[in-house]
C-alpha cells in the first residue's frame, strides 16, 4: 500500500459523502462535506505523527466510511427538507396509483377482438384510465423537478467531488436509456391499429424517435468521454475536469430522462385522448333516445 492508496481511500470517502448529501439544502450539505474533509485530513496527520503506514491509514479510512454507511443513510432520510420529503411521497403515491388505475385495473383486452369491441372495453374504464394518466403526469412533473435539481447541484460542485456524481449520473442515464428503448419499441404497439389510433404514429414514429434520440445521445456521450479522457491523460489542464465532466453529464442525463419520458408519455397521451373520445361515443350510444 502506498500514499496513492491513501489518496484513493480518502477520495472514496469524499465521494460517498458527496453522494448521500445530494439534494440537501446547501448549508447542511456543505457542512457535512467540509467536516468529513477536515476529519480525513486530521486523521491522516495524526496517523502520520504516530508513525503508521499509509496502507493502515487507507484501511482505517475505508473502514470508518463503510461502518458509517447505515448511520449516514438514516441521517440522510431524517435530514432532507420537509418539502422534498413530501414531494417524494407524492411521487411514490401518484406513480403507484397512476400505474394501477391506468394499466393494471383496466386490464388487457383480447387484442384480436374487433375495433368496436376494443373501444367498448376501454370506454367502460375511461374514468379510471383518465385519473391514472393525470397521476402519472403528476409524478413525471415531480421527477423532472428532481432531475433539474440534480443537474443544478452537479454544476455547482467543487473540484474533487465530481467523479462519483458522474458515475451516478451515468447509471441514471443507462436506466433512462433502457426505459426509452423499452417503451419506444414495445410500449405503444398494443394501443394501435384496429383500436383506432394511427399505426404509423404509434408503431413507427415513436419507436423511430426513441431510437434516433438514443443513438444521437450515445454518440455524443462517446465523443465527450473520449475528449475528456484525452484531456486528463495529457495532464496539466485536468485539474477541474471531474467537475466539468459531471456538469456536462448532468445535462445529458436531463436530455435522456426528458426523452424517455416523452417517448413514454406522448403515446400515452394520444391513447388517453382516444379513450376519452370513445367513452363519449359509447355513452352516447347507450343514452336512451328521447322522442
Amino acid at each position: 500500500m502506498s500514499i496513492a492508496t491513501e489518496g484513493l481511500a480518502q477520495r472514496a470517502a469524499r465521494w460517498w459523502v458527496s453522494l448521500y448529501t445530494i439534494g440537501l439544502p446547501a448549508s447542511i450539505r456543505d457542512r457535512r462535506r467540509a467536516e468529513i474533509r477536515s476529519d480525513l485530513w486530521e486523521q491522516q496527520r495524526a496517523f502520520s505523527r504516530e508513525g503508521h503506514s499509509s496502507g493502515l491509514t487507507a484501511l482505517v479510512t475505508l473502514d470508518r466510511t463503510a461502518r458509517g454507511v447505515p448511520a449516514d443513510l438514516v441521517w440522510r432520510v431524517g435530514t432532507g427538507d420537509t418539502a422534498g420529503q413530501s414531494l417524494g411521497l407524492w411521487f411514490a403515491f401518484s406513480a403507484t396509483m397512476g400505474l394501477w388505475l391506468a394499466f393494471l385495473r383496466p386490464g388487457v383486452p383480447d387484442l384480436n377482438s374487433s375495433a368496436p369491441a376494443l373501444a367498448e372495453f376501454y370506454a367502460g374504464k375511461g374514468l379510471s384510465i383518465t385519473v391514472g394518466h393525470v397521476l402519472i403526469w403528476t409524478s413525471a412533473g415531480i421527477f423532472a423537478r428532481f432531475v433539474l435539481r440534480l443537474c443544478r447541484s452537479s454544476l455547482t460542485m467543487q473540484h474533487g467531488q465530481g467523479a462519483l456524481h458522474a458515475i451516478v449520473l451515468v447509471s441514471g442515464m443507462a436506466a433512462a436509456a433502457t426505459l426509452c428503448l423499452v417503451f419506444a419499441l414495445t410500449g405503444v404497439a398494443s394501443f394501435s391499429g384496429e383500436a383506432g389510433l394511427d399505426p404509423s404514429v404509434t408503431q413507427h414514429l415513436f419507436p423511430l424517435a426513441g431510437l434516433t434520440f438514443h443513438t444521437v445521445l450515445s454518440g455524443a456521450m462517446a465523443v465527450f468521454l473520449a475528449a475528456t479522457t484525452a484531456v486528463s491523460v495529457q495532464g496539466g489542464t485536468g485539474s477541474n475536469w471531474t467537475a466539468w465532466f459531471s456538469g456536462v453529464l448532468g445535462f445529458l442525463f436531463l436530455l435522456e430522462a426528458t426523452g424517455a419520458l416523452l417517448v413514454f408519455l406522448l403515446p400515452q397521451a394520444l391513447f388517453l385522448a382516444w379513450v376519452v373520445v370513445k367513452s363519449f361515443e359509447v355513452s352516447g350510444r347507450r343514452l336512451p333516445h328521447v322522442s
Binding site: V17, E35, R64, T65, R67, G68, A71, D72, L73
Partner: peptide, 11 residues
C-alpha cells in the same frame, strides 16, 4: 480497537 465511524460520529 477501531475509531468511531464517520456516519455514527457526525450523525
Amino acid at each position: 480497537r477501531l475509531l468511531t465511524a464517520h456516519g455514527t460520529l457526525y450523525k
